[in-house]
C-alpha cells in the first residue's frame, strides 16, 4: 500500500468518525441529515482510494467506480426522504430540535 493511499484511508476514517459524532451529538434534525451525508462521503472516499490502489492502468478500478456512482444515487434518495421527514416533523412541532421530538420511549 503506497503512502498516498493510506493518507486517503486515514482521511476517510476521520470523516467517518466525524459523521458518526454529528449524528450522535447534534440536536438539529437537518444537521443529523448532514451527518449521514458525511458518513456516506467517507465511505465513498475509502472505496475510491482502495480502487485506485488496485488498478495499475485506470485511475480507479471500474468496479469501485460503479459501486460508488450507484451509492451516490442511493444517498441522494435517502437525503431527499430524510429532508421530507424533517419538513413533516416541522409541520407537527414547529421546531427541528430532536429533544423536543422524543415523545417515543427508548
Amino acid at each position: 500500500m503506497s503512502l498516498e493511499t493510506s493518507w486517503y484511508l486515514a482521511a476517510a476514517a476521520i470523516l467517518f468518525i466525524l459523521g458518526a459524532y454529528c449524528i450522535a451529538v447534534k440536536r438539529n434534525m437537518i444537521k443529523i441529515v448532514i451527518g449521514v451525508e458525511i458518513l456516506t462521503s467517507a465511505v465513498h472516499l475509502n472505496f475510491v482510494a482502495l480502487g485506485s490502489e488496485l488498478s495499475p492502468t485506470l485511475a480507479v478500478e471500474a468496479l469501485a467506480q460503479s459501486v460508488v456512482i450507484v451509492s451516490i444515487v442511493i444517498a441522494a434518495a435517502i437525503a431527499t426522504l430524510a429532508l421530507l421527514l424533517v419538513i413533516n416533523a416541522h409541520r407537527h412541532y414547529a421546531t427541528l430540535d430532536v429533544r423536543r421530538l422524543r415523545r417515543l420511549r427508548w
Partner: peptide, 13 residues
C-alpha cells in the same frame, strides 16, 4: 414521522 426518521438514520448508519 418520528419513528421513520429514527429508523432512517439508524438503518442508513
Amino acid at each position: 414521522i418520528e419513528a421513520s426518521f429514527k429508523y432512517l438514520v439508524m438503518s442508513t448508519f
